[in-house]
């Protein structure tokens, strides 16, 4: 199969676009489509400072790389979760540092252990919640906290089309109206506390971000987080890929259709739900203390009772 733009051999066949491309033209396509997404959803401008959440995986590193190529002002933020299995967190952190140095991009790193006294491994051992749910709460809290404190304009994450459609499918199957109301490529600032969150890769597939990372020789963590093995998001992604294989373009139509019909899931758009304030950290929350402070307090309680017993 030849590239549709030149005579070179195609390295990827993008069935949803009816397009086969060589390495060079795929790289151009990928960057241009990201630029279009930023423009389509008015995610941010060239004057904005964008905090990029960097896990060390393909999506976040590719996003950081592309935003730099497009001339945006970025600052990376990485959370060391302290997952020791397969040296996962240490390898992730090192890949982030190496990438940052190689590309001359600034990064800040926060260690969960150093800042809050526990790791995801330790929390998992005593956890009632699944590791993914706890990790999600911790990441959202710390990413927002960093974005606010640095005075940056928004927080960008590497969520791709597969992530977005898997979440959408899960939320629709379970009629999670609260989550459906909030799912969008751009979540505006809210409650004078939560920084805007944006997803410039929301229309790029996971296959595209992996292919782009491979072609640009981006050294990313290929191992999956050891705790995500049975994550429902992976199950939903597999289902969406089966549908996509039978009907190319379904994932993109599913996401865009949802965004175009968002009004059906939003009551009184623009009106903020009333929230309390966390008495511990000051974050707006459904009930005080907030979910993040409850995680920290719960861990501290277990540690102090263990100390008393020993």
């Amino acid at each position: 199969m030849k590239c549709k733009k030149c005579t070179k051999k195609a390295v990827i066949n993008l069935k949803s676009y009816n397009l086969s491309l060589c390495a060079e033209h795929f790289e151009d396509f990928f960057v241009e489509k990201t630029r279009e997404t930023i423009k389509r959803y008015k995610l941010f401008s060239k004057n904005d400072i964008v905090i990029v959440a960097i896990s060390g995986g393909k999506d976040s590193l590719a996003l950081w790389y592309v935003l730099k190529l497009l001339g945006y002002k970025t600052h990376g933020f990485h959370i060391d979760l302290g997952i020791k299995f397969n040296n996962y967190s240490e390898i992730s952190k090192q890949k982030v540092i190496n990438f940052s140095e190689k590309n001359g991009l600034p990064v800040s790193i926060v260690s969960l252990k150093e800042s809050f006294g526990f790791t995801i491994d330790e929390y998992k051992k005593m956890g009632q919640r699944t590791a993914c749910a706890t990790c999600g709460i911790i990441k959202r809290y710390l990413l927002n906290d960093f974005t606010r404190k640095t005075g940056a304009d928004c927080l960008a994450t590497g969520h791709n089309l597969d992530d977005e459609t898997a979440v959408l499918l899960g939320n629709l199957l379970n009629w999670q109206m609260g989550y459906l109301k909030r799912q969008h490529p751009k979540l505006p600032a809210s409650y004078g506390y939560f920084a805007p969150r944006v997803k410039p890769f929301c229309e790029r597939t996971e296959k595209e971000t992996a292919a782009y990372s491979f072609l640009k020789k981006i050294d990313y963590v290929q191992d999956e987080c050891p705790y995500s093995e049975n994550a429902s998001s992976i199950f939903y992604k597999k289902i969406m890929n089966e549908i996509e294989q039978r009907s190319a373009g379904t994932k993109l139509r599913f996401l865009r259709g949802f965004i175009d019909n968002k009004k059906f899931f939003s009551e009184e758009r623009g009106v903020e739900e009333r929230l309390d304030i966390c008495l511990n950290c000051g974050q707006p929350t459904v009930s005080s203390p907030c979910a993040f402070c409850r995680i920290v307090q719960r861990f501290q309680k277990v540690i102090s009772s263990e100390r008393r017993e020993s």
């Binding site: 390295v11 066949n13 086969s20 597939t205 292919a211 491979f214 597999k238 890929n241 996509e244």
Partner: peptide, 17 residues
């Protein structure tokens, strides 16, 4: 499922055909 992987041959990215 081809949507869930990328494939290299002799370390070069290749399409399914």
């Amino acid at each position: 499922n081809p949507n869930s992987v990328i494939v290299t041959v002799e370390d070069e990215l290749v399409a399914e055909d």
